[in-house]
Design a binder for these strands. Structure first.
Length: 805
DNA sequence: TTGGCAAGATTC
DNA sequence: AATCTTGCCAAA
């Protein structure tokens, strides 16, 4: 039996990034396993923290007095062997702490929290008791919540040894329980009683009859019995008193899906779909690590290919993981999977409560659920024996996490495919350049679905040159052709989707006399006007203030709104079409839980004529009555300092264009732009992904950008601009010294938005092809960043960054 | 000398 | 992250 446990403590720092050795006390010897969470004493005081056992051994190379594991938080490991290895790989490739990686992989509820209490050790004076312990009991000790005087007073008492701090690690993982019922008598006996009470107490007889149908020793929830036997809780209580049945607490899953889904059968595939399914099937059959790129235009039936591929894996007794972007994880989508695979499906996404997430996680962990559908973090679902991994809308930037660990779900999916010897299927109508380039190199098998399932042609796309429009009409967000087109649809009672590209765009307040722009006091960006709350808000830190009526700079009254916010467009639109019903969908109108779905449902039922929204309306919606799609400002993203600006614009325009005329009615698309000649817009009009790919690859080659080069972004931030800048210059010096001359170092430069939440940001981007010294150099920078970190300087490393802002 | 505080080191 | 340790200041 192992004597020593290697524990990663829940303290995310460089110094504690390696496991610490703890003795395993005899009474826990048979309980502790690798992958379990434990609590351990940590530090010279009485501090207790949670940790994860990552190894067992009989020896340790720590030459000191070992402390003992205090308690075990799990009955079974929460990390299986695969996920343990994955955590190590993740920490290694993303430059994140190992414990942070593990926390990210586990459901939120398994993140134990420590609480600190302070209590007297010796009788205190009456005054001291009254001042510090008014309740006469130990109190929670959180320096941030108490005022300075109380804190210093308590610390003084602590130094005098009169009070002590005690720790408690609170595990929040709690399965939901309900009252369960088991028959307490054999069937024959129950039947006997049933006959005697039949006349006088028919309800009791009903209950007795039901009890006879139950499997012995298998409790059924009381609520179920009330429902099925048609008896009240009072009847059950009486029965319990008479000793006919016993009550006990049983664990149940919180069921986030109340409405039953009607099962569906596999659809007939067209030739292209069949080829795709056949190839994927072969890979599953042969347990081959063969990865696929399914490149299918909107409406080409990618989902059906996914579903039938999943069915193949399930038929072989294996499991399936399907990743979709959070925004596409609508009930529409989830129901399609549930309809095909029923109870075997588990869904993981942020819309579920913590408890529901934990329950879905347990259903997967126990093997009860064999199909997992979820957003980014679902890639860590504890599914065993994976037969296929699918990643839909592969190009979506939301697959990359923009906090530590900065992982890309695609990389994790490929790792798990390798581990499980199963194919990974990446699907998109507009694949990322990285993926498409890898397919070109033969790393992925490319499966093209060029035909739309109903053979409907893609809608005609019109480009409206807004430069001309502005010349002719003075101002406004709508061009004449678009207004005419909207009117036509309204007359025909057809629906319209209008997209306002909000990336890098907002409505701000500017003084027309002196040019003063109202800015956030904490961040380096202008405040956005919000008409619903009648305030100016900062989109980065949440700062809020009143709308000025007089310019704070020159006291002019001519301070006006500029730019285009959804609310402003909605008002203008309403003015143009007073009788039209408009639904607005943006960050504000969808903040409340489920608001997103409610708006879509309303629109689906044709309770509105026009759906006006931001990026979020571009994804996966299928409304047959929509015959017109308008993009109000196609090019606001093009000017951004990001080498993916063209790619994002092309993807967005192609995706929205696919939203028009999906059923029997023909559709039409209008794209308003100030850059009508830009290749991203031209090629989106022609829906020509291949030519866009070739053109953009050429641009990337010219600029030495991914996918020709790898990229790493380093960022330093501090409240004082000079400190952040100086740190970045030192980092650049270290990079230049350690890396080969072939590495291209861009910067240091202030970030595009240089100041966010009172901090200044400086960044540098390294582009490289082969750089064996990169990892050690970055590790060294990470080490060096530990010391100044406490003075408010933080340094982050982002491998293959998606966000350059 | 004491005691109060910030910077630095240490945590199996 | 949260202690404990160290080194330096001034008050007493």
């Amino acid at each position: 039996m192992a004597q020593i446990g290697q524990v990663l403590v829940d303290v995310p720092t460089m110094q504690t990034n390696d496991p610490y050795s703890y003795a395993i006390p005899a009474e826990l010897e048979h309980q502790v396993e690798v992958g379990m969470r434990v609590t351990v004493p940590f530090g010279r005081g009485k501090r207790v923290v949670s940790g994860v056992v990552v190894g067992l051994s009989d020896v340790t190379n720590f030459d000191g007095q070992l402390k003992s594991i205090q308690s075990v938080l799990d009955l079974a490991p929460v990390l299986n062997t695969e996920l343990q290895q994955l955590a190590d790989w993740l920490a290694d490739t993303t430059y994140a702490f190992r414990i942070t990686c593990i926390q990210t992989m586990l459901p939120n509820l398994l993140k134990a929290q420590t609480e600190r209490f302070i209590q007297p050790t010796t009788p205190l004076t009456a005054t001291e008791m009254a001042t510090y312990f008014p309740d006469g009991a130990p109190r929670e000790f959180d320096a941030a919540k108490l005022d300075d005087q109380t804190v210093s007073g308590l610390l003084k008492l602590q130094r005098a040894g009169k009070v002590e701090v005690v720790y408690q690690v609170k595990d929040r993982a709690a399965a939901k329980t309900t009252t369960g019922i088991t028959p307490a008598l054999p069937v024959s006996k129950l039947q006997e009683i049933q006959v005697t009470v039949a006349k006088k107490a028919p309800k009791q007889a009903d209950l007795l009859a039901y009890l006879q149908t139950m499997t012995p020793d298998t409790p059924v929830a009381q609520s179920q019995i009330v429902h099925r036997a048609g008896v009240s809780a009072a009847v059950i209580n009486t029965a319990a008193d008479k000793g006919w049945l016993t009550k006990q607490q049983i664990e149940v899953y919180r069921d986030p899906f109340h409405q039953p889904v009607k099962p569906t059968q596999p659809l007939k595939l067209n030739a292209e779909q069949q080829v795709a399914v056949d190839q994927i099937t072969t890979a599953i059959d042969q347990q081959k690590v063969q990865n696929f790129l399914v490149e299918g235009v909107t409406g080409s039936g990618k989902t059906e290919v996914y579903l039938q591929s999943i069915a193949v894996a399930l038929n072989q007794g294996r499991t399936a993981l399907m990743l979709v972007p959070e925004i596409a994880l609508t009930p529409q989508m989830v129901n399609r999977v549930k309809a095909r695979f029923g109870q075997r499906v588990a869904v993981l996404h942020s819309g579920l409560s913590k408890g529901e997430q934990y329950d879905e996680w347990r259903r997967i962990d126990s093997g009860e659920a064999t199909v997992v559908v979820g957003a980014r973090s679902a890639v860590f679902a504890p599914v065993k024996n994976l037969g296929i991994i699918i990643m839909d809308e592969e190009h979506e930037s939301s697959y990359k996490q923009d906090e530590n660990p900065r992982y890309h779900a695609r990389d994790v999916a490929l790792w798990r495919g390798q581990y499980n010897q199963c194919p990974v299927v990446l699907g998109s109508a507009t694949p990322s350049l990285e993926t498409r380039a890898r397919a070109a190199k033969g790393l992925y098998t490319r499966l093209v679905l060029a035909k739309r399932v109903n053979d409907r042609p893609l809608p005609p796309v019109h480009i409206v040159d807004m430069r001309e429009e502005v010349k002719q009409r003075s101002e406004g967000d709508f061009s004449q052709p678009l207004l005419t087109a909207i009117q036509t649809r309204l007359d025909r009672h057809e629906q319209i989707v209008l997209l306002l590209n909000r990336r890098g765009f907002s409505s701000f307040v500017m003084c027309r006399d002196c040019g003063f722009v109202l800015k956030c006091p904490n961040c380096d960006i202008s405040l956005t006007l919000h008409m619903d709350t009648h305030t100016m808000k900062c989109h980065y830190c949440g700062h809020e203030e009143a709308i000025p009526h007089v310019c704070p700079n020159c006291h002019s009254r001519k301070i006006r709104y500029y730019g285009t916010g959804t609310q402003k467009v909605e008002q203008a639109l309403q003015r143009e079409f007073p009788s039209a019903n408009i639904l607005r969908m943006d960050v504000d109108s969808t903040r409340r839980k489920g608001a997103h779905e409610r708006i879509l449902q309303k629109f689906g039922k044709h309770e509105a004529d026009i759906l006006l929204g931001t990026q979020m309306i571009a994804k996966g919606l299928d409304f047959p009555n929509v015959t017109l799609v308008g993009v109000l400002n196609a090019d606001t993203a093009l000017g951004l300092p990001d080498f993916r600006a063209s790619e994002r614009t092309f993807q967005l325009l192609t995706q929205v264009s696919g939203r028009a005329g999906r059923a029997s009615k023909p559709g039409e698309v209008f794209i308003q732009t100030f850059n009508p000649d830009h290749y991203a817009i031209q090629l989106a009009q022609q829906q020509d992904y291949e030519r866009f790919f070739v053109t953009e690859m050429h641009m990337r080659h010219q600029g030495s950008y991914p996918p020709y080069y790898f990229a790493v972004q380093l960022t330093a931030s501090h409240e004082e601009e000079a400190v952040a800048a100086k740190a970045m210059f030192q980092i650049v010096a270290a990079l230049k010294k350690g890396l080969s001359p072939d590495a291209i170092i861009l910067g240091p430069t202030p970030k595009a938005i240089a100041r966010v939440k009172r901090k200044y940001y400086y960044q540098v981007v390294i582009k490289y092809k082969q750089e064996p010294q990169l990892k050690p150099v970055l590790e060294q920078i990470r080490q060096a960043a530990q010391v100044p970190a406490r003075h408010g300087l933080s340094v982050t490393i982002d491998s293959e960054p998606m966000n350059f802002m």
